[in-house]
Design a protein around this nucleic acid. Structure first.
Lengths: 110, 110
DNA sequence: CTATCGTACAACCAAATGGTTGTAGATCAG
DNA sequence: CTGATCTACAACCATTTGGTTGTACGATAG
């Protein structure tokens, strides 16, 4: 099980990335359209550097990709991170439903 | 939109709670069975107080509930938090699919 | 009653987080 | 070429986080 250490820190970064409303907003926006980093920065009441850091966090969580275009860096949504997050929560949901099934089974017996 | 501030910090706490492997493990375990706080603490290589703090984080995120039973505090899974997290990710997925639909539409036109 | 167990909580600490300003390198416009 | 724009990155700062130890208190067992 020691191998899973990789996946665990990956998930740490993923959910950590979601745990900030500015970052969640960035993810929504860059899924719909394309934005440069400064284009994103202009949307929020914080410095360019702060937004840049948020984008880096999202990139390391596979929620976003950056691609250089001229002097701009274009930020786009990356489905991969979202899929991984959803898969984990789906597992948790399955555990819940399993439990619900057991409860029903016990009721049926009794 | 200012009202959403509440929901945003709620989501912050929720995803923050998921952003730690010990806490994710606790959620899994208490969904399947019942554990006292010290019962949980015995599972991890950290102090009782540390686990107690993790449980508090999970409780504030509505991922877990505590119920006093004698001198023990029983920790159980709480579906509410999980549902909220899943609902958010489902919204994001919908935005993706919408985008995919638009792309297909453009291709059909051209 | 007394010891033990389970919990709560405070105080402390190191590291990470979320923000800032400042500097410097590319790229583009004129 | 020059100046403006976009990005990267370092240094710094306050707060939060994840951990520790220590103390106190209610509930239980003997």
């Amino acid at each position: 099980m020691v191998v899973d250490q990789l996946r665990e820190t990956e998930l740490d970064r993923l959910f950590q990335a979601f745990a900030d409303s500015t970052r969640r907003d960035i993810v929504r926006r860059v899924t719909v359209g394309e934005y440069s980093v400064s284009g994103l920065a202009s949307l929020y009441a914080m410095s360019f550097a702060a937004v840049q850091k948020h984008v880096t966090v999202l990139e390391r969580a596979s929620l976003v990709t950056k691609e250089k275009r001229g002097r701009e860096q274009i930020v786009r949504g990356n489905h991969e991170g979202l899929q991984k997050a959803r898969r984990l929560l789906d597992e948790y949901e399955a555990i819940w439903q399993e439990r619900v099934g057991r409860m029903a089974g016990i009721l049926a017996e009794g």
